[in-house]
Design a protein around this nucleic acid. Sequence first.
DNA 1: AAGCCACTTAGAATAAGTCTAAAAATAGCT
DNA 2: AGCTATTTTTAGACTTATTCTAAGTGGCTT
Lengths: 146, 146
Amino acid sequence: MKLDHGHKIYNQLTSAQIEKRLNDIGISATAQRIAICKYILCEADHPTAEDIKKWTDVNFPKLSRATVYNTLEVLVQAGLLKELKLPHTGKIVYDTNVAEHFHFLDSNTGKLFDVSPEECQVTLAMPNDISVQGVEVFLRGKISIK
Amino acid sequence: MKLDHGHKIYNQLTSAQIEKRLNDIGISATAQRIAICKYILCEADHPTAEDIKKWTDVNFPKLSRATVYNTLEVLVQAGLLKELKLPHTGKIVYDTNVAEHFHFLDSNTGKLFDVSPEECQVTLAMPNDISVQGVEVFLRGKISIK
DNA sequence: AAGCCACTTAGAATAAGTCTAAAAATAGCT
DNA sequence: AGCTATTTTTAGACTTATTCTAAGTGGCTT
C-alpha cells in the first residue's frame, strides 16, 4: 500500500502525450478531454466529478458539468479509468489504477489508499451453483503515527 | 448462502412482540415505529427507505417520509438494523442481519444475498502501521439454473 | 388543566447526477 | 476550400434520494 500520494508529481504528462494516449484507445482528443485527463492523471487522487468540475472552473472556464460526466463515461468505457462507489459516502470517485485492487479508507483523514491483491486475499467457499465474477473489498481503519 | 427469501413468512411477529423488542433496546414503541418494524422484520428483504415509504403509504397512511428516515436511524443506532450502501446502485438498504457477513449480488435478478464469513474469508497482509477495523466484501455473479 | 418533551408531519431545501435541445466544433467527402 | 453529417459541448432544467425545518400532536407529570 503506497502511503505517499505525492508520487503523481513524477507523473507529469504533456498535452501531446495525453492526446496520443486518447487517440491510441480510440477517443478523439478534444481540448476539454485533454484538460480533464491532465487533472485526473497528473494531479488528482481519487477525484469525484465535483472535484474535477471545481478544477476546470479555475483552469478551463466554461467547461460544463455535462462534459465532465460525459468525458468520465468515455474514459471508463475505454478502460482508462475505473469508477468506484464509496461505501461510506456513496459518492463516485475515479481511479487511475485500473489493475485489480481493493481500497483502504483511513478513518482519521478520510483518505483512500489502494490495496494490492497480495495485501488482501479473498478465499471463497460458495455453493456450487454460484459463480462469482467480481469481488470488491473495502477496508477501514487507522494508520498509526510513528 | 440462503437462497430462498421466503423464510420471512416463518418470521411473523405480533405488534406486541415488536413492541417488547423495541422497549428492550430502549426505543419507545410508537404506532409508526411498530408498523415500520413489522414491514422490515417480517416482510421486506433488504428494503430501501423508499420501499418502506411505499409500504406505509398503503398500510399506514399519513406516515411521513421524515418518520421513515428518523425511525431507520433510531433502529440502526440501537443495533437492530444495519445500513448498507450498495456499490452498484449507491442506494442504501437496511439489513436485519446484524451479524458479521458480506453480500452477493445476483447480476441476473438484481437480488442481494447474505454471505457468511465461512463462505468468504479475507486474509490481510497489510503494513504494520495499518490497523484494519472494518472489512466489507461485495461479490457479484450469477446463480446457475439447474 | 397547563406545561413539557418526544415524536410526527408536510413540504421546502439540498446534493449528486442525468437529461435536453441548441450551438459549436470537427471530420469526411468532392 | 466548401458542404454536409456527425460528434462534442453547453447552459440550464430535471430527477432522485436524503435531510432539514418549523409547526403540530399527543400523552405524561405535577
